[in-house]
Simulated scan of single mutants.
Amino acid sequence: MAAMAGLGRSFDIAPIAAGAAFSLRDCLGVTFICTGNDTFTLTCSDSFGGSYATPGNTIVNKATNTSTNGTAAWVSGTQAASNAVTISSGTVAFYVSGDSLPDGKSYVKVSAGGSGLVTAVFHDLVAQRKVDNLAIRGA
């Protein structure tokens, strides 16, 4: 059995995602992977160019890693329910399910308070597609 590439089959990705708006259309959710000594704040909207506001306190579960290069193990953890995550070093990852957003809100954005970096991994794609046919998430 031949292996299949993951991009287009099980995930889509936006490597530089801080402050950018993305659609959750055709996927069940997104994992934001954030690095840097910073606070990362989640907002949502009902349209790409709409007004972004807090989705409520949806972030409880997170995973942290003391490294940014894969040389340390991930550690699962929780925090008080919030729409923001703060780290002082290393990496933090948190999942946002489309189901956790208020009704009608399907666009998300994670903003860094300073110079933190954000990558967005959209997963559990509803339909498998060739990479040439993936939806443009930032539109």
Rank of each mutant, 00 (worst) to 15 (best):
F32T: 03
G104L: 12
G77D: 09
T66G: 03
C27L: 10
V30M: 06
T66K: 01
S97Y: 06
D38W: 10
G49H: 08
P55H: 02
P55A: 06
S106W: 10
C34N: 05
T91R: 05
T39M: 03
Y52S: 04
D46K: 13
N69I: 07
S45A: 15
Q79F: 12
G104Y: 12
K105Y: 15
T41D: 03
V30A: 10
A72F: 05
G56E: 07
T39N: 04
S100N: 12
A53I: 15
T41W: 03
S97T: 06
V75T: 13
L42Y: 07
N61L: 13
N37C: 10
C44W: 01
T71R: 09
D46Q: 14
G70Y: 09
I33W: 00
P102L: 14
I59P: 00
D26K: 07
A81R: 02
G36I: 01
G90V: 08
N83V: 06
N69G: 01
S82M: 06
G98F: 12
P55K: 03
T64M: 11
D99K: 14
A63R: 11
S89T: 13
S82N: 08
T39A: 06
T78A: 10
T43G: 00
S97Q: 08
N83L: 02
G70C: 10
A73K: 08
G49R: 09
G29Y: 05
W74M: 11
G29P: 02
G98Q: 14
T54P: 04
L42D: 00
L101T: 02
N69V: 07
T41L: 05
V85M: 05
Y95H: 10
G50E: 03
A84V: 00
Q79M: 13
G98A: 13
V60F: 06
T91D: 02
A72I: 01
V75W: 03
T39E: 06
T43M: 04
S106L: 15
T71M: 10
L101C: 04
D103R: 12
G49Q: 12
N69Q: 05
G29I: 07
N61K: 14
N69F: 00
T39W: 02
F94D: 02
V75G: 04
L101I: 06
S89K: 09
A63W: 11
T91C: 10
L28G: 12
F32R: 04
C27K: 01
A63I: 11
A63C: 09
P55S: 02
T54C: 05
T43N: 05
N61I: 04
T78C: 11
N57L: 13
C27H: 01
S45W: 04
V96G: 05
L28Y: 12
A72V: 07
S47G: 13
I33P: 00
N57R: 12
G29T: 04
G56K: 09
F48I: 14
T68E: 06
D99A: 15
A73V: 12
L42M: 11
F40G: 00
T68W: 04
Q79Y: 12
G36F: 02
T66R: 00
T58M: 06
N57I: 07
D26S: 11
N61M: 11
S100Y: 05
S100W: 08
